[in-house]
Design a binder for these strands. Structure first.
Lengths: 182, 182
DNA sequence: GGAGCTATCTATAAGAC
DNA sequence: TGTCTTATAGATAGCTC
């Protein structure tokens, strides 16, 4: 979209990077505004510059959308009596697991479809699928560790103390599902 | 940007509006992704469709950015001196972070190489890259939660008890680097 | 009813001032 | 440093199947 094509990689020159940030941020907000009007939807964008300065765009407002987003996540998982951090973490992990599961299904479909492509494309996919699984492995491993950690804590008297500590909020990431080739 | 110029006003036809929403949302997320990479900044986008379904994009994750935005008087993760299970978990996360970083580099290289391929293969890659990032986001989110959790525990007296409890082993996944097309 | 196509419109990388 | 210009890359509206 400019005189020359640029690679999507960190812009090294600080000056150019600042200009790029400013231009593209403006463009992004404009696009977001158009989307909200055209489709009548609510949207919020938050960006932190390199200098850690916050820029935001929201319709009707960042707070409204973000709050709604956070509530959505919280509502969808409290069926538990004891409301402490570990339960929230566990509930969160369940959602993450679900998402990972969905991804796994998609990956499987991909592998199957991959066999219908020419050799080069197929190899390409296989390699990617492999990395996918490794990444999933990492996620699952992390979840396991957290779970174990939580379990240990729950059986200890620490629970009594922790219940009175401030807790990390729970949120939900939405996985946009999209998959199709040929 | 299309066969015809359109006015920025609500698209009346529900079907067309849905298509527009889907296309532009994808485009917006792609732009946000480019911005975060080009300028090395953190960004989060949350959108609610007409059906009130949430869609989000975040680098490193929606959670991180939104939390940072809301608190706006941010985090402080001391480089702590206590040595026990939590430190092991933290060390583990550092390795995982390194691995994710490596993957990110590979993905970036892939995007660049992708531009040299035919259109179909390219689109294919872009989609995959996107999902990669989503998975990475999940991993990062999990890591953050564990970190937060650990931090909370560290400042409590529980540490004394936990130090005597068996601990989840530390592991390391080896990422097989491999990338080749063309 | 979602994927692919392409003519056309829009965003923006470099320049110029 | 900011603003304006312009050639070009990129996004997408309308369409097809």
């Amino acid at each position: 979209m400019g005189r020359r094509k640029i690679q999507i990689a960190v812009v090294k020159d600080p000056n150019t990077r600042q200009v790029t940030f400013s231009k593209r941020r403006t463009g992004l907000f404009k696009k977001a505004n158009e989307l909200s009007i055209l489709c009548g939807v609510e949207i919020a964008i938050v960006v932190f510059s390199i200098g850690n300065k916050p820029y935001s765009f929201g319709h009707p407002s960042v707070d409204v959308v973000v709050t709604k987003f956070l509530q959505h996540a919280t509502n969808s998982n409290d069926a538990l009596g004891s409301n402490n951090s570990s339960n929230e973490v566990v509930g969160d992990m369940e959602r993450l697991n679900q998402q990972l599961s969905d991804l796994q299904t998609q990956i499987l479909e991909e592998e199957i479809k991959g066999t219908k492509h020419d050799e080069r494309l197929k190899q390409h996919e296989v390699t990617q699928v492999f990395q996918y699984k490794e990444l999933q492995g990492l996620c699952l491993e992390l979840q396991r560790k957290v779970k174990d950690y939580v379990d240990e804590i729950e059986v200890s008297e620490c629970m009594l103390l922790l219940a009175q500590e401030p807790v990390v909020g729970v949120r939900k990431e939405v996985i946009t599902k999209k998959r199709r080739k040929n």
